[in-house]
């Protein structure tokens, strides 16, 4: 199925990716080619076939709902310290709601 520039813009918006006009054009061609190859899967009869999402054979690995590691203040500081924009021990972001 061909992917139009409009499709690319829609997907990029969903994925929060900024693209230049040149990139939109390039990705529209490349994604069309790749998806044309993927259409091969239509040949396979999968009527009533189960889905495989994972192959470990495991189900619902549970643990008690309790802390198993002590709170490590230094580690928390290290983690917060990696944020590009912060104030004290908080990560700063731009506003979500605009005036």
């Amino acid at each position: 199925m061909p992917i139009s520039i409009k499709d690319v813009e829609h997907i990029a918006k969903l994925a929060r990716l900024g693209l230049s006009d040149k990139e939109k054009d390039k990705y529209s061609k490349e994604l069309s080619d790749i998806l044309a190859y993927m259409d091969k899967l239509r040949e396979v009869d999968t009527k009533n076939m189960e889905l495989t999402a994972q192959v470990s054979g495991l189900r619902n690995i549970l643990r008690k709902d309790e802390n198993h590691e002590k709170v490590d203040v230094e580690k928390i500081k290290k983690i917060i310290g990696q944020a590009p924009d912060r104030e004290d021990n908080f990560i700063k972001t731009k506003p979500i709601l605009e005036k």
Binding site: D7, Y27, L31, L35
Partner: peptide
């Protein structure tokens, strides 16, 4: 705004193949 931070940071910070696969998967 926040959306700008996301799209610009990901647009510049992630390489071409990574963005291609993110789009393929999103689609």
């Amino acid at each position: 705004n926040l959306i700008d931070v996301y799209t610009r940071s990901r647009g510049v910070g992630l390489g071409e193949e990574v963005r291609r696969r993110i789009m393929l998967g999103t689609y």
